[in-house]
Design a binder for these strands. Sequence first.
DNA 1: AAGAAAAGTGTGACCGGTTACATTTTCAAT
DNA 2: ATTGAAAATGTAACCGGTCACACTTTTCTT
Lengths: 325, 325
Amino acid sequence: MTTIRDIAKAAEVSVATVSRVLNNNGYVHVDTRARVLKIIKEFNYRPNAVARSLYKKQSNTIALILPDITNPFFPELAKAVEDALNLYGYTLMLCNSDERPLKEREYVEILKQKYVDGVILVSHTLAPEDLERLGLPVVIVDRNVHGKIPTVLSNNIGGARRGTRFLKEKGYKVIAHLRGPENIVTSNERYQGYLDVVADESWFHEGLTAVGNYNMKESVTATKELITKYPEIDAIFSGNDVMGVGAVKAVQEMGKQIPDDIGIIGFDGITLGEMIYPELTTIAQPIYEMGVLAARMLIKLIENKPLNTTFYEFPIKLIERKTTR
Amino acid sequence: MTTIRDIAKAAEVSVATVSRVLNNNGYVHVDTRARVLKIIKEFNYRPNAVARSLYKKQSNTIALILPDITNPFFPELAKAVEDALNLYGYTLMLCNSDERPLKEREYVEILKQKYVDGVILVSHTLAPEDLERLGLPVVIVDRNVHGKIPTVLSNNIGGARRGTRFLKEKGYKVIAHLRGPENIVTSNERYQGYLDVVADESWFHEGLTAVGNYNMKESVTATKELITKYPEIDAIFSGNDVMGVGAVKAVQEMGKQIPDDIGIIGFDGITLGEMIYPELTTIAQPIYEMGVLAARMLIKLIENKPLNTTFYEFPIKLIERKTTR
DNA sequence: AAGAAAAGTGTGACCGGTTACATTTTCAAT
DNA sequence: ATTGAAAATGTAACCGGTCACACTTTTCTT
């Protein structure tokens, strides 16, 4: 492997000069620069990133910690993050936490050892006090945390209200809700949004909400139970698209028509919603933009540039497709 | 940050001794070891992975280069790889190549600069000669390459034959094929498998094959064109599940019944197939196992342990679900 | 009890960059 | 010609580990 000293020797300058050329700082005579550059090209020399990291205490790498890349929401976000990072010369470490706070914390320790510059935490399970002690620049995506940690999310309550109201406007009479895990903020917010719209309805009762844990299979069984128990249900507001897809499937398996017998609306706006028939109407978050923004914010944080806002809430967008009439 | 020298000072030993304790090699007196360990715990010391990497020329990091994590096949593989790597103390770098050989090559350069220990290349687009020059341990997944590079894949031709034959056995008469990109080995192999089974049929002609480029939306339009042009088609063997899902959707949009009017079988065995209605019959590759094996092979390669086989072809499994009668 | 082998520990070079500081050269201003 | 700032370059310490080698102490062998 060629090192900076090899280059220095070949170009008949000191390593400092080569370093100056590489980093474009300090004074270097044009002729010298040209000579060094020529040698670098000749040797096809690339500075050793690890050596650089050791001295600079940073690695141009950031980590994305998420529950499980297998869940179709996350790849879209991960892609956005990676695209953005690439633009700024960073590379991406992918960490699946499996929803385990312990694994998240272990990962953070390992990442610190590796001089990872920062972390994007998606749908994390860490306690706020853990977050404070992280000792690394962090941006949170998708889960609100009281505190001064930069956060990117979308308007969950507003979106949920909008979606539920939309179902009402479309003439659906009895709207059920599939909700996510009970310990997750977004899940509760979306539930809250649903409640805000329907709590005063004459038909409303708590039994119309079932837990699908943001999971497709659970959603299928939950939906079937729901509809069997309360046949008057004619619409479902699902807390995310994955459960929404499950609901669509469940309803179809029961032989009911979508959107006539039952209308369904999801939340998230993942592409999965466009892969099924009928296509899923949904409250879409701008997932890609959120990923890009999170990456940008983190980089600013790392590079000590000022953040205009430390809390960014994206508006949602209702995408009317085929599961509502 | 505490360094090994801080620990050495506090424990009143030399850095070498601390290093010996950390790495469990060389002679260290039990009492000394205990003392050092105590100090380490007290200081909550973690050795600096970057410094270690610099000397050892390895980083306990491997990279996964794949076309696009957004394509639902890859997250499942990525998860498997990550799980396996974790077990062995490695972390994962995620690199989206966007199918661009140039980007793949650039990534490899950056990865080498970072002392990444090895690379798993999935569905790569690199030329064989590029692969040879990589200068890093590599394992290839999903795409066959003539050469001595360790490879993990599944029996594409056999699987394709099996799937096509299965449609015939089920009594379908005119079987079309949705194929992937023309420059991709797996895509061609699956096409070949299809041909092997149907080429001699009286009804067979080349028009029954359409290109869906492994892509959902393209598959939808391709399927519609196919069926409109050749209404005698009553079954589709799709080169992958994503296109299979597209075909299901297209057929449904055309108002035809699955599996009675048209039977569909996919290839891959991704969970997406279970998310739609009716669930997709498919030729399943053991994706998770393939990912795990690729990771294991790469680690063996990195650690200079012998590989029993450099070429591993997994058997496929027909999973009969609801898109075939 | 002597000598050899094993056990225990320390010193300092090394990995390959960056940069503070020192030194030398250039050049415009006086 | 002199001066002093700017320009150009070099030296060596530093980042935080690892390990070859040297050295001392303990244990074993005969």
